[in-house]
């Protein structure tokens, strides 16, 4: 369970408000009018089969993908306003990628300080202080001087989380953060995310980790073929889905060895 009141963070949490979001690649419409709200301090997990548009939706929130229609509000920013100061908005939105995307030419510490120094204009020592604090938060303070390629996948992903946290974001986006990890390192990353959720961070998480979603998420959103099929409290959507497509998906994910006659 997370709580949005007992936050240890000094940064104000921001919410997300998405209305009728549409996105096409050529003639292929991948988001067909998505509406979704994340209250400040809430954790929302996006689940669904691959190709359902959940990663695209996440990437639209900080405009790594340009939507074709609809509106997105992130805290005080309207992301879809053509005049929005994108760089200023993105400072407030931490993003964690499936493949970490750490900067391989920089040490772990420099990965966490470069944007603080270049974007927030913090001094080198201040940035290093913030970076070390956040590396401690993800349990990797002792690896600050290593380079990314000297770390395991799970360690790299935790550094990526620390890097995002070092910008003091009001919202964190996670794009399948554990999908590229060895099974044995998944737990460490999920533990860090669970802790963040408990500290009151607003989180929008694309994940296949149903256990994590059930335990940590305030709400779960099931997407398929570019639309929201079902959403609600984690317990309801995962343990007692009402829509046939949700049931089918969860059955496959939770019981992958189950063999069934395919009818369609």
């Amino acid at each position: 369970m997370n709580n949005s009141t007992g936050s240890t963070s000094t940064v104000q949490a921001a919410g997300v408000n998405i209305k009728d979001l549409r996105k096409s690649y050529g003639s292929n419409e991948v988001l067909k009018g998505i509406s979704l709200t994340v209250e400040p301090g809430q954790v929302v997990c996006l689940i669904g089969p691959s190709g359902s548009g959940k990663s695209t939706l996440l990437r639209c929130v900080n405009l790594l993908e340009q939507p074709n229609g609809g509106t997105i509000n992130v805290g005080e920013f309207e992301a879809t306003d053509p005049d929005v100061d994108l760089n200023r908005m993105r400072r407030n939105v931490g993003m964690v990628f499936q493949h970490f995307n750490l900067f391989p030419h920089l040490s772990v510490l420099d990965n966490c300080t470069i944007s603080q120094m270049k974007v927030l204009k913090r001094s080198k020592s201040e940035a290093a202080g913030v970076a070390r604090h956040n590396l401690e938060r993800v349990g990797l303070g002792h690896l600050a001087d290593r380079f990314p390629d000297q770390l395991s996948g799970g360690q790299q992903q935790r550094v990526a989380i620390a890097r995002a946290l070092s910008m003091d974001p009001q919202l964190m986006l996670f794009d399948e953060p554990t999908s590229a990890l060895d099974p044995e390192t998944v737990g460490d990353v999920l533990a860090v995310m669970r802790k963040l959720a408990q500290e009151g961070m607003t989180m929008l998480v694309v994940t296949h980790e149903m256990g994590f979603a059930r335990e940590v998420a305030d709400r779960v959103v099931f997407m398929d073929a570019g639309v929201v099929v079902e959403e609600g409290p984690a317990e309801n959507v995962i343990s007692a889905p009402t829509q046939p497509r949700t049931k089918e998906f969860l059955r496959r994910v939770l019981d992958p060895t189950h063999i069934d006659v395919v009818e369609d």
Partner: peptide
């Protein structure tokens, strides 16, 4: 992904 990560951190 390198450019995307940098832009996500607010870099122009």
């Amino acid at each position: 992904g390198q450019m995307e990560a940098a832009r996500s951190l607010g870099m122009p």
